[in-house]
Amino acid sequence: MLAFVARRLLSTIPVLAIVAVFVFLLLRLTPGDPAAVIAGENANAAQIGEIRAKLGLDRPLATQFFVWLGHVLQGDLGESFFYKKTVAELILERLEPTLMLSLCTIVLAVAIAIPLGVLAAYRHDTWVDRATMAFSVLGFSVPVFVVGYLLIQVFALELGWLPVQGYRRLSQGFGPFLERMILPSATLSVIYIALIARITRASVLEVLGEDYIRTARAKGLSDAKVLRRHALRNAAVPIVTVIGIGIALLIGGAIVTESVYNIPGLGRLVVDAVLARDFPIIQAVILVFSVAYVLVNLAIDLAYTLFDPRIRY
């Protein structure tokens, strides 16, 4: 097991190297010049050129890349072109909101989707099953921002129960934190509830047709025990896989949700950086996302061993 983990961690190195080169080149080849953005409307070519030189953007591409890589290898992600703050400082400021949004979303999605999927499988071909599938299709089809604005209209503007926007850190109190996290995580979880419920239903439905389920029922076990101990446990591997994929997909959804609810997270940071061509931030955040993606996949692989003892690394 330890050897497997070590191998997987080592495999992140080439992945990150490829991501680093790809992102660096992509940014430099994309139209846009941060120096022109910084210089503003009145600037002439000479002023823009001076700013470009100051930022080191006038150097050959290879020099720029190796200077950046050298700093990254020393743990220095660089300084934002605009904010005059280190990228590490900016990422740390923005990490908590995104982590909390992702965590709340996954918890909410799993808490709702798995019972819903199991229930749909158990009540196969009844109105419960059909309603779950209809919700699933709807959840996939409606864009995140539409769900967000609808929830804001109803729960914040019409009923006044929850705030429209903003984020409070956990250190500012659990109440204010929760109050501002309910609508964003509900918004973002809709698509994951749809996804996980659908996979759960399919997996459980398949398992319910197995011989050992019939045997368990013949032994006189209650339906609840059959579902919990035999059906769900055997259906867990595909469900865990889809939850893992969901966490990776969350990054995209979080960007939209953070914009709609004005949550100052990593998603907003990277969108602002892209619009302003703040290269050091974009490069660093994408590297962080890549590391997170690799680690989530590793965690999912390890989780398989908990649900299926036959899987060994």
């Binding site: 604005y149 804001i152 914040a156 503007l157 006044g160 705030p163 429209v164 926007q165 903003g166 914009s259 709609v260 609810y261 004005n262 100052p264 907003r268 969108v271 602002d272």
Partner: peptide
């Protein structure tokens, strides 16, 4: 100065008194 890049969100926040 609150950074709310989404205009609709800013308008909603004003109407809600935030």
């Amino acid at each position: 100065w609150r950074a709310i890049p989404d205009h609709q969100t800013a308008v909603n926040a004003l109407m809600a008194g935030e």
